[in-house]
Amino acid sequence: MAGSTVSSQQNAEYQKQMQIEQAQIRQRMARIGRKILVLSGKGGVGKSTVAVNLAISLSLAGKRTGLLDIDIHGPSVPKILNLEGKMVGGMPDAILPVELNANLKVMSIGFLLSSATDAVIWRGPRKYHMIKQFLKDVEWGELDYLIIDSPPGTGDEPLAIIQLLETADGAVVVTTPQEVALSDVRRGITFCRSLDLPVLGVLENMSGFVCPTCGQRTDIFKSGGGESMAASMDVPFLGRIPIDPQIVEACDSGQPYVDKYRQSQAAQAFSEAVIRLVGTHSESVMTTGQKGDQ
């Protein structure tokens, strides 16, 4: 009987602590306008590249933006943004994210590792705790957007972030055109619907290659599969991002693609996708992109 009483007390204390922490998350998230997840049902579709360039596009448009990388086992955002080796700041009661520019703050477990080659060997509960800390303890401040780069699939990380956020605005689902990727994306859309998370749109990445010399287009991975799938699943289609070797160059060098190559077809496709996604902010996004090329 005594053991049962102790167990009940411990459970009550645990539940009370959980309520306190969730209230802290709500308080921080209340200062953020829109919270958008970038998801994919399958790895290798360029999801992190999309998340980074979406965040960069918004920040260039003057939107106060946060980029949260919750890929615990494979954090690639620090590399893509040339932030490897950067350290987060600290306050008595908060963690300060890394600031890329005046309008973009970034947080990733990559900033907490002693080396870029360190492996994070964690089970679900520790990953859940880390994601909770990103939301509860990171001082994001006032933001217009928080873009969240989630690892592929429908496992611990996307489930944890959706449940902890409680009121995320929705998800952008990234795919490539071939059927092997589309079948997994369909599961991702079903996952979102099961958790009452709106699907803001599907983005088809690696959609054709346009030769920079002759201009001829080659559909290496087919084309149009993402749009057809979006129509069949009754979700918006945000556009197609063509293959561009300069995207790889930009990611490897840590120079944001949409900023460095604004006149390219892929950068224009990113801009159009952002317009479809953010709606009323479309004019400022386009104006910023055009000014940078003058």
Rank of each mutant, 00 (worst) to 15 (best):
K79W: 04
L81M: 14
N82M: 09
E84P: 07
E84Y: 11
K86M: 14
K86R: 13
K86E: 13
M87K: 15
G89F: 11
G89Q: 04
G90K: 12
G90M: 06
D93I: 01
D93S: 05
I95H: 03
P97V: 01
P97S: 02
V98I: 13
E99F: 10
E99P: 00
L100F: 12
A102Y: 03
A102C: 08
L104I: 01
K105S: 08
V106T: 04
M107C: 10
M107T: 05
F111H: 06
L113G: 12
S114D: 15
S115A: 13
S115T: 08
A116E: 15
A116R: 07
A116I: 13
T117H: 09
D118Q: 13
D118L: 06
D118V: 10
I121T: 05
I121N: 13
W122M: 15
W122V: 09
R123N: 15
P125Q: 09
R126F: 14
R126V: 15
K127I: 15
Y128C: 02
Y128T: 07
Y128P: 00
H129N: 06
H129P: 00
H129S: 15
M130E: 05
I131F: 07
I131T: 05
F134Q: 03
F134Y: 11
L135P: 09
L135D: 13
K136Q: 15
K136V: 13
K136F: 10
V138Y: 14
V138H: 08
W140Q: 07
W140R: 05
W140C: 01
G141R: 08
G141N: 14
E142F: 03
L143P: 04
L143N: 04
Y145K: 13
I147M: 12
I148S: 07
I148W: 11
I148Q: 07
D149G: 06
D149R: 02
S150Q: 03
P152N: 06
P152Y: 10
G153T: 09
G155V: 13
D156R: 02
P158M: 10
L159R: 08
A160P: 00
A160S: 14
A160D: 09
I161V: 12
I161H: 10
I161E: 11
I162Q: 02
L165A: 06
E166L: 04
T167E: 14
A168C: 12
D169V: 07
D169E: 07
D169P: 04
A171N: 02
V172A: 02
V173W: 11
V174A: 06
T175I: 03
P177G: 04
E179G: 12
V180A: 12
V180Q: 05
A181N: 01
L182I: 03
S183I: 15
S183D: 10
S183K: 10
D184C: 13
D184K: 08
V185E: 02
R186L: 12
R187K: 15
I189M: 03
I189A: 07
C192E: 08
C192A: 11
C192F: 04
C192P: 08
S194C: 09
L195I: 05
D196G: 00
P198G: 03
L200N: 08
G201P: 11
G201R: 10
G201F: 01
G201K: 02
E204Y: 11
N205V: 00
N205T: 05
N205P: 02
S207D: 04
S207R: 12
G208T: 00
G208L: 01
G208E: 00
G208C: 01
F209A: 00
F209L: 00
F209M: 00
V210E: 09
V210C: 14
V210T: 15
